[in-house]
């Protein structure tokens, strides 16, 4: 199965590298929103809580712009039947999950420095800040993969992905906002517990998705 996963992943990277639709769109969206927030705040100093909320709103909606493409593209280009014949459903799910995790990493790598630079953020506990962003990103991409498959099979209607994802991802956003707030607050004593929660959530949702993917992906 490992070779199947690598083959599918390579195919997805090639397709994305050729068009760069999802990546360009997501990065443009996230940079625009970050700059819009910076311009609107006009250099005003914001509390760690407000900054964390804004950061995770930007990350969440950027993810919503990009993470569904991985499955919706297959339906739009009518390649899903070929993919079903060519690869096992387990390999398809795992390769798409890995692609989404990598995609989220790229978004975060682009957004976090911009956000820190334009909103003049002092990161007090940098290890906790990076861990919260990484664990939060992993949890979002884990939950988004199965939901993206559902949306693609439902016809890939635009706003449906955000509508079904937001409430399911709310625990992730809630905990990630708290963890980020603590990492930016000089008076707070940071803890690794929120990061452990986010990692546990990711593990749980990946296990559930792995079991359910067959029913979403195959027409039995």
């Amino acid at each position: 199965m490992a070779s199947e996963i690598v083959r599918n992943l390579r195919k997805d990277i090639h397709v994305e590298a050729r068009s760069r639709t999802a990546l360009n769109l997501t990065l443009s969206f996230s940079v625009t929103v970050t700059l819009a927030i910076s311009l609107a705040s006009a250099g005003a100093r914001m509390s760690p809580g407000t900054l964390s909320i804004l950061l995770w709103i930007v990350l969440f909606f950027s993810a919503m712009n990009g993470l569904s493409h991985i499955f919706v593209r297959e339906e739009e280009r009518r390649t899903e039947t070929f993919l079903r014949l060519y690869s096992s459903y387990e390999a398809i799910y795992l390769s798409k999950l890995l692609f989404n995790v990598a995609f989220m990493c790229i978004i975060e790598t682009a957004i976090l420095p911009l956000f820190i630079f334009f909103l003049q953020i002092d990161v007090i506990h940098s290890a906790h800040f990076i861990a919260a962003a990484a664990a939060g990103g992993l949890a979002i991409s884990s939950a988004a993969t199965i939901l993206a498959a559902m949306v693609a099979r439902a016809g890939g209607r635009g706003s449906l992905f955000t509508v079904i994802s937001f409430p399911v991802m709310m625990p992730v956003i809630w905990v990630a906002i708290n963890a980020t707030t603590i990492s930016l607050d000089p008076k707070a004593h940071p803890s690794w517990n929120p990061c452990f929660f986010l990692l546990a959530f990711s593990g749980f949702i990946v296990a559930m998705s792995f079991l359910l993917f067959r029913f979403v992906w195959l027409d039995e």
Partner: peptide, 16 residues
């Protein structure tokens, strides 16, 4: 398909 995808979503919802 409505049944299968709906059921998968309900199971995820039940766990959240």
């Amino acid at each position: 398909r409505k049944g299968r995808i709906g059921a998968a979503y309900l199971i995820i919802a039940m766990s959240v």
